[in-house]
């Protein structure tokens, strides 16, 4: 019975990791694919930043550019951020303009979407690798996968909008088109210099800085101190330490901060004086990095 529960928990972890891997891969492929599609299909032009749309401390640049037929257009960036640099009014930037919507653009030399996509993709590969190599694929894996898929499908079905209230595909497209073709209200577009010169902005930034800077500094100092301590200890072990064969005698399960479990291996080895020593490894993990083994 206990074995069944343990197998079930292991399969649950494995399937959870696999689902996480699939979600990360899907998000990564979406971002990276969208960026590649934009680069392949969008047309390019040189644009000038005429200002930004500020919303909750985030700046979305607005560009003016001329299309190949010589017509002047205004487009807003698809990406907004709190980053100030590079958004100076009058700055000339190479643009990639969405083929379907001339009012949306992104800077040609911005690879943010590609990086985000690649990070998600790498996380997906990593999670998938852990799921497939750290756990054996058993019948319980398939049972748990089926159960989780049914559970997620049921949850997904509940969150769906009832059919009567659901807009048709044509309505949805019309709504999207209206949103895309809504012209930019130039009254909302302000030079970033004007926003930065405002007293409200300065005070907010200074207040944030007063809180964040000491926290970051303290965090960095602690990390450097721990890093130096670990390095000195390791250097001493590597220079004056001895090596011996060891074996994993058991896994020690401990509760982690997030309420889960972390497994530490307990290793036994014999010193050069033939004294048997057991120690718990300092690096834990879930799934465990080792299994119980014999020498």
């Amino acid at each position: 019975m206990l074995n069944l529960i343990a197998d079930g928990m292991q399969a649950y972890n494995q399937v959870g990791l696999l689902i996480g891997a699939l979600i990360c891969l899907a998000i990564g492929c979406f971002f990276f694919g969208y960026s590649l599609y934009q680069r392949a299909h969008a047309f390019r032009a040189m644009g000038t930043i005429i200002g930004v749309i500020c919303n909750d401390g985030m700046f979305r640049p607005v560009y003016r550019y001329a299309s190949p037929d010589g017509q002047a257009h205004v487009a807003k960036s698809q990406i907004n951020s709190s980053w100030v640099r590079g958004k100076e009014t009058g700055r000339v930037v190479p643009l990639i303009i969405s083929a379907g919507n001339p009012a949306e653009a992104q800077e040609a030399n911005s690879y943010l979407l590609d990086i985000v996509g690649l990070v998600f993709f790498a996380c997906g590969i990593w999670l998938g690798y852990i799921a497939l190599t750290s756990y054996p694929i058993t019948l319980m894996t398939w049972i748990m996968a089926l159960a989780l898929i049914i559970f997620l499908a049921e949850r997904g079905y509940r969150t769906f909008i009832p059919k009567a209230q659901r807009p048709s595909f044509a309505e949805w497209r019309q709504k999207l088109k209206t949103r895309q073709t809504t012209p930019i209200d130039l009254a909302d577009v302000k030079p970033i210099e004007q926003i930065l010169a405002g007293p409200d902005w300065r005070q907010t930034q200074l207040r944030k800085l007063k809180i964040a800077a000491p926290v970051f500094a303290l965090f960095a100092v602690i990390l450097v101190c721990v890093g130096i301590y670990q390095s000195m200890k390791l250097a001493r072990l590597e220079s004056t330490g001895l090596r011996a064969d060891g074996e994993v005698v058991r896994l020690q399960r401990e509760s982690s901060d997030d309420g889960g479990s972390v497994y530490y291996v307990v290793v036994r080895f014999r010193t050069e004086k033939n004294v048997s020593i057991e120690f718990k490894d300092k690096v834990g993990g879930n799934p465990p990095s080792h299994r119980r083994e014999t020498k």
Binding site: S231, L237, G246, V267, T271, D281
Partner: peptide, 26 residues
């Protein structure tokens, strides 16, 4: 597996030897 330890204090100063990259990763 290989264990790396200090001869004068093996109980407190012992670790799994994960090779150069593994040991220095943390």
């Amino acid at each position: 597996m290989i264990v790396l330890y200090l001869a004068d204090n093996p109980q407190q100063e012992a670790m799994i030897d994960r090779g150069f990259w593994g040991n220095w990763a943390i």
